[in-house]
C-alpha cells in the first residue's frame, strides 16, 4: 500500500503571522496539518464533518472548518488559529477575556472554535445584536453552556472592542 509520504508535497503558508513550510498529502485536511506538523493543537476535531465548528480557523480572514478544508488549498494563504488570537502582546484578547470572565467556557473543547467564529463576526460587525451572534455561531456546537453566557461574552467583548477603538481614535486625535 502506498503511504502518505509518497504523495506528500511541500506546502507553505502564513500561520499566525509566521511563514511555515511543511509537507502535506493530497487527502490531508487543514486540520491535520495544523494539529500535526504545525503542532497547533488549539484547533479541535469535534466531528470531522463540518457539523460542530470546533475546528474553526480563519483563512485569509474568513472563518472555515479546518476539517473540510484541503490542506494544500492554503498554499500562500494567511491562516489564523486560536493561538494567533491575542491582544497583540501575547495576552488574552477582549473575546478571550470575556469568555473567561462571563462563563463562555466550561469544558473548553468548543471554545477555540467558538472564539475564532466570534472573532470573524466582530471583524465584520462590531456591534452585533444577540440574534446576530446566535446566527453567526450556529455552526459551533456547545454541549456545556447552553450558549447563554457565550452570547453575553461576545456582546461584552464587542463593547470592549468598540470602546478600545474609540479610545484609540481619541488618542490619535481623530474625530470620533
Amino acid at each position: 500500500m502506498e503511504t502518505r509520504e509518497d504523495a506528500a508535497v511541500p506546502l507553505s503558508f502564513e500561520l499566525n503571522g509566521e511563514t511555515v513550510a511543511v509537507r502535506a498529502a493530497p487527502a490531508a485536511r487543514l486540520l491535520d496539518v495544523l494539529r500535526g506538523p504545525c503542532g497547533r493543537t488549539g484547533t479541535k476535531e469535534g466531528c470531522g464533518e463540518g457539523e460542530c465548528g470546533a475546528c474553526s480557523v480563519l483563512v485569509d480572514g474568513r472563518v472555515v472548518n479546518a476539517c473540510l478544508y484541503a490542506a494544500l488549498d492554503v498554499e500562500g494563504c494567511r491562516v489564523t488559529t486560536i493561538e494567533g488570537l491575542h491582544d497583540g502582546a501575547g495576552g488574552p484578547s477582549a473575546l478571550q477575556r470575556a469568555f473567561v470572565t462571563l462563563g463562555g467556557t466550561q469544558c473548553g473543547f468548543c471554545t477555540p472554535g467558538m472564539i475564532v467564529a466570534a472573532e470573524a463576526l466582530l471583524a465584520a460587525n462590531p456591534d452585533p445584536a444577540a440574534d446576530d451572534i446566535r446566527g453567526a455561531l450556529r455552526g459551533n456546537l456547545c454541549r456545556c453552556t447552553g450558549y447563554v453566557q457565550i452570547v453575553e461574552a461576545v456582546r461584552s467583548a464587542a463593547a470592549a472592542r468598540r470602546a478600545g477603538a474609540d479610545a484609540a481614535r481619541a488618542a490619535a486625535g481623530a474625530p470620533s
Binding site: 503511504t3 502518505r4 509518497d6 504523495a7 498529502a25 493530497p26 487527502a27 491535520d32 496539518v33 500535526g36
Partner: peptide, 16 residues
C-alpha cells in the same frame, strides 16, 4: 511524520 492524517490513497492534488 504526521500521525493524525488518513492513509493517503489520493495520488495527487493539482491547483491549476
Amino acid at each position: 511524520m504526521s500521525t493524525e492524517t488518513t492513509v493517503c490513497t489520493i495520488g495527487a492534488y493539482h491547483r491549476p
